[in-house]
Amino acid sequence: MNTVEKQLLNEPKRIVQNVITAVIVIVFLMWSLTAVDLSNFTSNGVDIAKNILHGIVTPNTDLLFTFNTNGVPYLLLETMAIAFLGTIVGAILAIPLAFLSASNIVPKPIAFIIRLLLIFVRTIPAIVYGLMFIRVTGPGPFAGVLTMALTSIGMLSKLFVDIIEDLEVNILESLESIGCTTFEKIRYGIIPQLSAMFLSVAIYRFDMNLRDAAILGLVGAGGIGAPLIFAMNGYKWSEVGSILIGLMVLILLIEFFSNKIRNKIVRG
């Protein structure tokens, strides 16, 4: 046997590992396939699909260009306001929570407890928050703002923590060596490092909140969601079309600008 053949025998064999992975994936796939249930699918479905498509491509232009509180432009404005305020309130609340769950700032047990709390905050679906806040404020966009704020906290604090844990601490040492107080260390050593990244993350979340705004409509917490869902439940597909078109154009525009702004912020 020459050296080449010997070396060939040394080839790391991944067969067992690959087979196990494949089996696991296939088992999960088969298991999840049991969720496929086409028994409710009727030939009706195709007609409905056609109707929906037809409605969406022939939107109700009246609704699209009416400038009172029932028109699409105002609803979009209200949705943006909800997402904007929700993001700001959520971001403000997320900052202390993030610091409290960063393991390089507070003792490990405290960080762990806060993290657990955050998981709960994140798991509760927006609908439930919506219902809880409607008791506080009554139905309307105010409840929407509070709901958005609470649902934003989960993701924002998680991303904030990542940023905090990447913090460059050497700078603090050098600031201390020039004789800075704790406040000065935070003001000149920490905030400049964090603010740009935090802002970028918050803008990203604003983008997401706008997409999720439709959910608020389910519980009557303001925004464009409620009219959208009413229209869908009433099979008024051309109204659905005009609302969807408005929403999609807005989301694309906001995404375009938010990407631009975030690039500017992060790259300086």
Partner: peptide
């Protein structure tokens, strides 16, 4: 690889 004298780095 052997011709280039790096057979030992094959994997």
């Amino acid at each position: 690889l052997d011709r280039m004298n790096i057979l030992d780095k094959a994997f």
